[in-house]
């Protein structure tokens, strides 16, 4: 056993001497990982401690799994967790395909100028800050002056105070997120489409495929590996919903569907500076996210032979 290790380190030493330029190139990345990703993991301890910033990490007493117990006994946390899954899950179903569809549509646009203009138009919302997006959404959906309600009432329908109705929150949140991000996310798929050899299309044209058939039989299958990678990454973020935008849009009235783990942590942290509890919630999330990514990757590797690692 030990001789194998010795052998390994001997070989490593030889490799280092021979290819030191290559190792030098990778060094900054290794340092970056160690310093900014592994070093802070030390702080994860506080999830298992009764943490006081003044006492410090080592000075705070261990409490075992008490923080996790507190979380899991808290129905509001459980609800926030389920909401997180629901919002990302629905986002996955409804928002994930949109950039793909957009990219395919852009690909089908023949007019170069028209394509540039429309691409730019759909990219733009990505660069608007969430604060402004939230403002736009609130204005659009205002029950008195909002365009949506003006249309509803001119159609003879009842006005709806969308932002206070829990049933509408997910639709609004996911919908406006699609509006904001789909265009930008389509870039990755457009790049993948650009990588498809044009002769595949020419060959298909000669063989008699319609544009529709080419889209289904060539474009989509050829970008499938990209789609799967993006999907795995997305699944990894299933337990992650950014809190800024939620905080801007939600109301106590919509907590039932809108309160997610990050907003829960935000409120908890603000109320009692409960870093230990917040860290426990974060760790809980991370473990689940890891399990999800791991499983998704496994399944993908088996089924489609595409995988992250």
């Amino acid at each position: 056993m030990t001789s194998r290790f010795v052998g390994y380190f001997k070989r490593l030493g030889e490799d280092l001497r021979r290819d030191w330029q290559l190792y030098l190139l990778v060094l900054p990345m290794i340092l970056w990982f160690l310093l900014f990703l592994y070093k802070p993991m030390e702080g994860l301890q506080i999830a298992f401690k009764d943490f006081s910033p003044f006492r410090g990490i080592s000075g705070s007493p261990w409490v075992g799994l008490e923080n996790f117990q507190t979380l899991l006994e808290d129905q509001i946390f459980i609800r926030a967790f389920l909401n997180t899954i629901a919002i990302s899950g629905l986002g996955l179903i409804f928002a994930f395909p949109v950039p793909i569809i957009l990219a395919v549509m852009f690909n089908e646009l023949q007019n170069e100028f028209g394509r540039r203009v429309s691409q730019t138009i759909v990219y733009l919302p990505h660069f608007i800050s969430v604060v402004i997006v939230a403002g736009i959404v609130i204005n659009l959906l205002s029950p008195t002056t909002g365009v949506v309600n003006l249309i509803l009432s001119s159609l003879g329908l009842d006005r709806i105070y969308f932002l206070t109705q829990p049933e509408w929150f997910r639709t609004i949140f996911i919908g406006s997120n699609i509006w904001k991000e789909a265009g930008f996310e389509s870039i990755v798929y457009l790049a993948a489409i650009a990588g498809i050899s044009p002769t595949l299309y020419e060959s298909a044209r000669v063989d008699g495929a319609s544009r529709w058939q080419m889209m289904w039989r060539i474009t989509l299958p050829c970008i499938l590996p990209t789609i799967i990678i993006m999907l795995i990454i997305r699944i990894g973020n299933l337990v992650e919903v950014g809190f800024e935008y939620i905080i801007l849009l939600y109301q106590p009235a919509t907590y039932r569907t809108a309160d997610v783990v990050s907003t829960y942590v935000y409120r908890t942290g603000l109320q009692g500076t409960q870093y230990d509890l917040a860290t426990a919630a974060g760790l809980f999330n991370a473990v689940i996210a890891f399990a999800l990514v791991f499983t998704a990757n496994r399944i993908s590797r088996k089924v489609s032979s595409t995988s992250l690692w």
């Binding site: 050899s197 002769t199 595949l200 020419e202 060959s203 298909a204 000669v206 063989d207 008699g208 495929a209 319609s210 058939q213 039989r217 060539i218 299958p221 050829c222 499938l224």
Partner: peptide, 26 residues
């Protein structure tokens, strides 16, 4: 007409049989 291309233009996601059949399938 049928055309054979320099870089073969085979569909990477289809097997040989499906590639050959492509023109008939569409």
């Amino acid at each position: 007409v049928a055309m054979v291309f320099q870089n073969y233009a085979l569909y990477p996601h289809l097997n040989v049989a499906e590639n050959i059949a492509f023109g008939l399938r569409v």
